[in-house]
Amino acid sequence: MSYIDVQNLSKSFTLRKKREKGKLLREKTEIQALKEISFSIGEGELVGYIGPNGAGKSTTVKILSGILTPDGGSARVGGLIPWKERKRHVQRIGVVFGQRSQLWWDVPIMDSFQLLRDIYRVPEDQYKKRLSNLTDALDLGAIMKTPLRQLSLGQKMRAELCGSLLHGPGLLFLDEPTIGLDAVSKLALRDFLKEENEKKGTTILLTTHDMEDIAALCSRVMVLGHGKKLFDGQLSHLLSRYDTVRVIEVRYGSGILPPLPDCCRMERNGENYRITYEPEKMPTAQLLSLLQGAGEIRELTAQPQNIDHMIAAMYKEMDL
């Protein structure tokens, strides 16, 4: 029995267009945000949920967290139907929206946490224990008395995470948690999430555009496009299909690289060259001999293509 079980879930929105001249009624257009998607997630899994803007990711998360009522299909989370048994359901989940705060703007975050304790009816001893654990893990000690509005983006996100975990949820929905964060904050956040998942067994559904997050955290990914599920499985499987391109960077002490065949893309920055090619069309050995013939090579690195490029290629192929 899986923890989250979704069957043929659909949701559509009607958009009212602006009234055109001479027409009495406004035209309506219906947008199918979700078209009968199904999936299941087991307890303790950490699943990445990706797809281009407008694919229906947020709609899914909003339905699973009880904000929206779907038009058709069924969903059960831990045995509960989110939109029907909302209060019982949300007691057991935590949600973090990267661009939206659930804490109070003008008050010290400590006060926000206390109010959340009352809202979720968390017993005092449990609250104290969790708060001290989270304060340590998220390094919040120094900013407890600072109002939210004075915090940096990274501090805010840590505070948000703390707020959404105070009631000890078994399931955590994260919607773009690393958006806008600097490198240090990002890495710290990833470590925290990994630990939360591995040590406490919290099930996590992570929606993001940041493929580095996915690569660092999730073994399983689901890809959504135009309201349909396009892929569900190991990230490595997904990538191997699109991992067709390699990148070589080379720096010359002297000499100029002659034009390369059309199947290679070359960018030049002074003495540095960056060549993107497909080994299928241009064997690596052949390329290397071309490069060597051009002059004295000081430095050479070879690497797989950036993960974002792969995803872009995938979206393109899937016509998203």
Partner: peptide
């Protein structure tokens, strides 16, 4: 602002919040 979403995520009545 979408703040109403946040209220729906908590185990209390919407009007109360």
């Amino acid at each position: 602002s979408g703040h109403l979403d946040t209220f729906l995520l908590r185990p209390r009545g919407v009007l109360t919040q």
